[in-house]
Nucleic acid binder design. Structure first.
Lengths: 197, 197
DNA sequence: TATCACTTGGTAGCTACTATCATTTCGACG
DNA sequence: CGTCGAAATGATAGTAGCTACCAAGTGATA
């Protein structure tokens, strides 16, 4: 019997799987940094992690998925749910992002920024990153709709979420990309995008 | 000598190339519709267009590019430049899009909608569609910056463009996607995203 | 017509990815 | 502790997108 009844089992098998998964991701990311994404083959990654190429695909359906982690999405949604109901939707989203960022360790932030950099520089990854954002729009729209007591597919809520994500994406390409930039963008959006000459 | 000095030459060679290009695109789109994107091979498309697979890749660098046309981007930018300088940026963008749509024939609109539908249903294409939008953000930001007399990489202008594109994307998934929906979304954004319970 | 550049077809090869099967390894239970 | 079933792995073969290269054909030009 395990120590805690509903936690995932932690037998030798599970530990090995977790280690293999981590090894594949780490060596993959390292090789991508060292010699580029396209120049790194699955075979090399598998060899570095000491498994067969077959095994690689059992852990990650595609090469891209090695970079596409996104453990942060559910955290973001949780943070959004935790915001006081009085806050306006845009303020709630802004503060939720700020809260999530505040909880990250410096190491996590660094790794996230590195991931973003890699994703933006490789066309293939950039494309799927955009697709990832599309999923984020869905999740955010759902959460915002709940806040407002509107149906999940409410038109205005979807447009709102799209604008938020779009503003966020736009900051990911600035040469000095940091997460503070993202917060600034949301503040600007909250102010109604006041563009004057 | 050609009739007009700076227009592209229209010799037999050029005409054949244009015909081959069109044939590849047409047969490709038809096969995609009939039997699905993933189920259609380059070989089939090449055979239908009566060229070799090698030739396919000389016209389109990837299979995806067959669907990614995007002749509309420059038209959109031109329409944006043509807007009276007095209009606010958001109104200018909205009206520019409306103008472009008004100039399309019914056939063009239909084809555009079909293209969007195909792109949204195939994950692979959806990803690159998002990448296409990213390029559009760049172009729009540039045009808006010119209007405002700001540098091309102005932060606020980029955020603005990101929000516009994000709002636009969000409307592409609604079951009743039409171009009017997109205009409605921009109106909502122009109003400052007024979300209340 | 002769020459030259461009376009094409064909071949070979690399790599991401799938399907399948035999082998090994771990976990559970008597 | 030994055995049996399930899960994980490795190996093999095959498909398809895509690249590189070379030889042959076709259109432009003088």
């Amino acid at each position: 019997m395990n120590s805690s009844p509903d936690s995932p089992p932690v037998g030798l098998r599970e530990r090995k799987k977790a280690r293999t998964r981590a090894a594949l991701r780490e060596h993959g990311m390292r090789l991508f940094r060292e010699q580029g994404y396209a120049e790194t083959t699955i075979e090399q990654i598998a060899e570095a992690a000491d498994v067969s190429p077959s095994t690689f695909f059992r852990y990650f359906p595609t090469k891209e998925d090695l970079v596409l982690v996104d453990d942060l999405d559910p955290v973001l949604i949780a943070a959004l749910e935790a915001q006081p109901i009085e806050k306006s939707p845009i303020a709630a989203v802004r503060d939720a992002i700020a809260d999530v960022l505040a909880e990250l360790t410096d190491e996590d932030r660094e790794r996230e920024l590195q991931r973003h950099e890699l994703m933006l520089s490789v066309p293939e990854l950039r494309a799927t990153l955009m697709d990832e954002f599309r999923r984020t729009i869905d999740m955010m729209a759902e959460a915002v709709a709940r806040r407002l007591g509107r149906p999940a597919d409410d038109f205005e809520v979807r447009v709102f979420s799209g604008a938020v994500i779009g503003a966020t994406i736009s900051t990911f390409e600035s040469p000095v990309h940091s997460f503070e930039t993202t917060l600034r963008a949301l503040d600007f959006l909250a102010a109604g995008l006041p563009l004057v000459k």
